[in-house]
Nucleic acid binder design. Structure first.
Length: 419
DNA sequence: TCTGGGGTCCTAGGACCC
DNA sequence: TCTGGGGTCCTAGGACCC
């Protein structure tokens, strides 16, 4: 039970967000099957979805399914702007808004009913305002818990409103496919199907021990809780991020030392820069290497003190990648490299210390560490004034990674949870 | 001729400590 | 002499989400 009252949790979810924005910006795209992206489908309009096109699908596959499909490049800054605008509309009804991505949010309107009417009325008003003022279709689910509200909004799509009255939860859930439950993706859905479980009602009828043995320890109990509507999560204020990462798809490349240094240098630059901007440092560094065929391995290490220096992060990342590759046979080809920084703490170095030339820095570690810290600080300063391209690290000349638009990286990294 | 970039959370096993 | 139980931290992998 999320609360002892009625169904006051709303889940608001913009429909086919990127594609809808494109159709809003360019009316000639309306009512046509379109996809945002190219090599991969980032979003597909409902017209395209009726052909089986879906987000995450390789571009060639999407064209196969839908020969008339139009690919459009994304207007990523518009997505951010319009997404923010929608969140503002939500905030006009209640301060209790938990944004969970660029295009969806939870609201608790229990405290707003005396001003705006019952939750269902509020939901309808929100949909009307978003359609009228922003121009985008929004689906809303209303229920007593977050999980139920989210399921309801999925059922409401496209451009609909579904209310699950308090007390009607089990009846609502029972006929739905298990894939609508939060936490049931393709793998678990297949595992459940194998056991003859297709609907939430069938799932709820199975003892959680059986689910544990089916899906792995722990997973069963949690799923059973969702299926039987025991979901205590509240609408929350944003938490701090627990990790910061960057990755780059490389096509298919031989993993030479040059490749590792340039690619990981580029990624370390991004990650370390964001760490410093957030006033944080990382104790655990993880590198992921993906090989042709989607197989991947990770190597991580935990260090003390925590780091945020670009060059230090680069060195550790290269070291980790080398150990990961050493266990492969031959000269391996890689398709993707990634760096993730976690175990985030406040940095040992005080960024606000005055920096008079020649002033000794107490407790700043060895000379190399201090030099790197100073280097990062000047680079950050120059970039803040003249833009990111104004200056860089010698090792980081990896311009062919900019195939992915910077705006898309920013959008993807735009975390509703502030650092 | 299996695709993008950014995340969260969970589990298992081993090391190490008391 | 290696028996008991409990806890934390670290690493690797995996599922899932937007």
């Amino acid at each position: 039970m999320a609360n002892g009252r009625g169904a006051s949790i709303l889940h608001a979810d913009l429909d086919a967000f990127y594609a809808s924005v494109e159709q809003l910006l360019d009316p000639s795209l309306r009512h046509r099957p379109i996809a945002v992206g190219g090599g991969v489908v980032l979003a597909a309009s409902y017209e395209a979805r009726s052909f089986g096109v879906s987000a995450g699908m390789p571009g060639w596959r999407a064209r196969q399914l839908c020969p008339g499909l139009m690919f459009v490049p994304g207007h990523f800054r518009e997505y951010q702007r319009l997404g923010d605008q929608v969140i503002e509309v939500l905030g006009a009804f209640t301060p209790v808004v938990e944004r969970i991505s660029i295009d969806e949010a939870f609201l608790d309107v229990a405290g707003a009913v005396h001003m705006f009417g019952p939750p269902a009325t509020i939901a309808a008003a929100i949909r009307g305002r978003v359609r009228g003022e922003v121009g985008l279709p929004l689906s809303v689910g209303v229920a007593r818990t977050k999980h139920l509200a989210k399921v309801a909004s999925q059922v409401a799509k496209p451009d609909g409103l579904v209310v699950v009255p308090a007390g009607a939860e089990r009846a609502f859930l029972e006929p739905l496919p298990v894939g609508l439950l939060w936490g049931v993706g393709p793998v678990r859905q297949a595992q459940l199907a194998e056991a003859g479980i297709f609907t939430v009602g069938q799932l709820a009828a199975v003892h959680s021990d059986v689910l544990d043995s089916l899906l792995g320890k722990g997973a069963g109990g949690k799923l059973a809780a969702l299926a039987t509507d025991v979901d205590p999560r509240r609408v929350e204020q944003p938490r701090r991020a627990v990790s910061i990462g960057a990755q780059a798809a490389l096509g298919r490349r031989t993993a030479t030392s040059e490749l590792l240094h340039s690619a990981l240098g580029y990624l370390a630059d991004r990650v370390a820069g964001r760490l410093r901007a957030a006033g944080r440092a990382a104790r655990t560094i993880t590198v992921r290497v993906r090989f042709p065929g989607l197989r991947s391995v990770t190597r991580s290490m935990t260090v003390r003190p925590a780091i945020s220096e670009t060059l230090t992060l680069t060195e550790l990342a290269v070291e980790l990648a080398v150990t990961a590759l050493a266990q492969q046979r031959g000269e391996p080809e890689v398709t993707l490299l990634a760096i993730s920084a976690s175990n985030l703490v406040e940095p040992a170095l005080q960024l606000e210390l005055p920096l008079e030339a020649g002033a000794p820095r107490r407790g700043a570690g060895d000379g190399a560490g201090t030099a790197r810290w100073l280097l990062d600080r000047s680079v950050d300063g120059i970039r803040a004034r003249f833009g990111h391209q104004a200056v860089g690290y010698a090792a980081v000349v990896f311009s062919d990674m900019d195939r992915v638009p910077e705006a898309f990286r920013e959008l993807a990294q735009h975390d509703p949870k502030p650092l």
